[in-house]
Amino acid sequence: MSRNFFKSKQYATSKIYRSKPQELRGSDEEKPNVPQGIMTKCPGCSRVIYTKLLIKNNRMCECGYYFRLSANERLVMIMDEDSFTQIDQQLTTRDPLSFPGYCDKLVRLQTQTGLVDGLITGKGKICGMTTYIGVMDASFLMGSMGTGIGEKLARMFEKATYEGLPVIVFTASGGARMQEGIFSLMQMAKVSAAVAKHSEAGNLYITVLTDPTTGGVTASFAMLGDIILAEPGALIGFAGPRVIEQTIGQKLPEGFQRAEFLLEHGFVDQIVERENLKATLGAFLKLHHKEDRRNL
């Protein structure tokens, strides 16, 4: 009896990262939007919810409010059990401008969050279909894109191009990594270039825009998917709402730059509820499956 207990406990917490179970600790300490403690107050309806219940419900409140997910939580939710292998796990970003305080900040965040940077990439299966997948994590410097994230994405697209496999990217980012200056800007060109090559070779690319997706990420790989999905209520835009309000000197209308607004204006294919996301991705992967594809 005790053996069974240990066994189930062991696998319950390390479904994807069997070899690296410590990664599942996630990043709950950092984020204002992520529940902490035994009880969590919902910003949508002000109800107080058991955090355990919330986590079990993929961090969705009954009122329809979506809490942000960490990259690890997202992978647990989306990938087939035991199918995910991370790539470039230890690839760290650079400090190309020797920006004052940046290195220390990175080390502190890595310790706090257990993440190397704001993106996990890898390969695995969704509903039995093999795909490359990248998931951004807004708890790490707002998921801002620097050289580390740019390099990881470019490598993943190049691998997927070589193997003839699809790529799925979950975006969650405030945009550019300011501390890396012009190098951060150039990652937009670098990743877009890798996406273009992957696309030219006839491969499928799906983006799932989650809260928040803005700035240089929106103006590059987020908007380049063959299929663009979004989570309900996600903030998606080029300029941030505050910058726009300052520029035009007026308040923005309700719902501006939310996923539903983008759908209405023709920039998103579907808004998909969290509980349907895995099945939806699986269906799109099946629609694009080629029998003769190399499955390396």
Partner: peptide
């Protein structure tokens, strides 16, 4: 690139992204 309501409604991010690719 301009930051405004019309620019967002008409996909400033998409327009820039497409040019890059």
């Amino acid at each position: 690139a301009f930051c405004g309501i019309g620019a967002e409604e008409r996909g400033q991010g998409e327009a820039i992204a497409t040019n890059l690719a």
